[in-house]
Design a protein around this nucleic acid. Sequence first.
DNA 1: TCTAACATACTGACTGTTCAGTATGTCAAG
DNA 2: CTTGACATACTGAACAGTCAGTATGTTAGA
Lengths: 217, 217
Amino acid sequence: MAAVRKTNQAQRETSVEALMQAALRLFVDNGFDQTSVDRIAEAAGLSKGAVYFYFDSKEALLHGLLDQGENVIVDRMVKTIAGAGPKASDKIALFVNTQAELGVTDPDRVLLLILSSLEFHNKDGAINQRLRAIYARMYAILEDVIELGKTQGVFRGDLPTPVQAAIVMAGHDGTFLEWYRRKDSLDGPELVRALRAATLAGLATDKSEKSNKRRAK
Amino acid sequence: MAAVRKTNQAQRETSVEALMQAALRLFVDNGFDQTSVDRIAEAAGLSKGAVYFYFDSKEALLHGLLDQGENVIVDRMVKTIAGAGPKASDKIALFVNTQAELGVTDPDRVLLLILSSLEFHNKDGAINQRLRAIYARMYAILEDVIELGKTQGVFRGDLPTPVQAAIVMAGHDGTFLEWYRRKDSLDGPELVRALRAATLAGLATDKSEKSNKRRAK
DNA sequence: TCTAACATACTGACTGTTCAGTATGTCAAG
DNA sequence: CTTGACATACTGAACAGTCAGTATGTTAGA
């Protein structure tokens, strides 16, 4: 305590940084609603007053974190996909790999996006709108790649693109969550290999469409 | 109000039923923590005291709902898979179809399982233990089928079974969530078709393993 | 001195849980 | 068939705790 005080501007930066880091950690671990402002302040080595000095509300804190997340994650994804070769299958493989890399490099930021969209999914308000906008950007990227693969004839064209995109996205989010929860019992690199294989195979044009007889019921 | 009072036993049944249905609905819509006991009671047309007359605690209510869910979901899955033909690919297809059917027939019960396991995933306590036990049963079924497919030579053997099972499970849970949130823009049957195709293709032995060059970095 | 950057103390609202009291159902004795 | 003793199914209020947000005090930098 009573750390040496820096210049005001430097102090401002480090305090804001400390608060956001603490909030990110706690939001991811306990959820937004289950995290009190007091605990955020305490974890950042500050008081509740400091939180409200820098942020208008608890939601504003989450808002700031989501902004950061969008910059880190979506922008990276846009650039990576755009910079890849022209083949749709390469772009999809890159989508999986980039998600995985981000998950290893900056798991909390990825988790915050996924968990928040679950926690807020049936609440109205600015946070939900923000999350929807972020996911919309991700879906736009994905759907473009899938469409590309269809015109290239490497992805099956008998299913709606939004449906395929939803499965890819949900599969990746869900798998990442599962990996995060069971890091000990799940091997990361193997998981990425398997996920990439499943994603590509699931999108690819059939090489043996046969057992299409009605099953179950 | 002042409804005609039934016999004690009948009254007990209808009240308990009303409370559990209300709780299921609200837990799924708003989450466990965000649902107050008052709102449950109100939705059931009773008072808060009535909740505590029939249940020891709010958690006990969730406990009861999870018990019901396990009976409906896991038992059904066990029987369906066991009753299928000997081919692992058929059993996997049946796994997807059964999940989908359950999702259509009784979405709330499926959702409660998925959402609760997310909400409680890093909390200790009886609820989390219960959820882990339920999921463990599901994973056991899945892993058995995958192992079977490997011995039958139809599923790829170069990946750990738990990894493959995690992807299948996460993909299904995630896809179901996405479908539930976007019923309007996602066609259910097509989603099931696509998911079944992706699951089977992702597990199947490679027919063209080639582009295994290291990508990204 | 003035003000940015906090800390402290507090408010009002909401929460899960408990409980005394009441209205109604049940059932055996007379 | 009535009645009294009891069990069941609640209600309404209160309690202790927690929380987001606010108002105000304090101190160090400019």
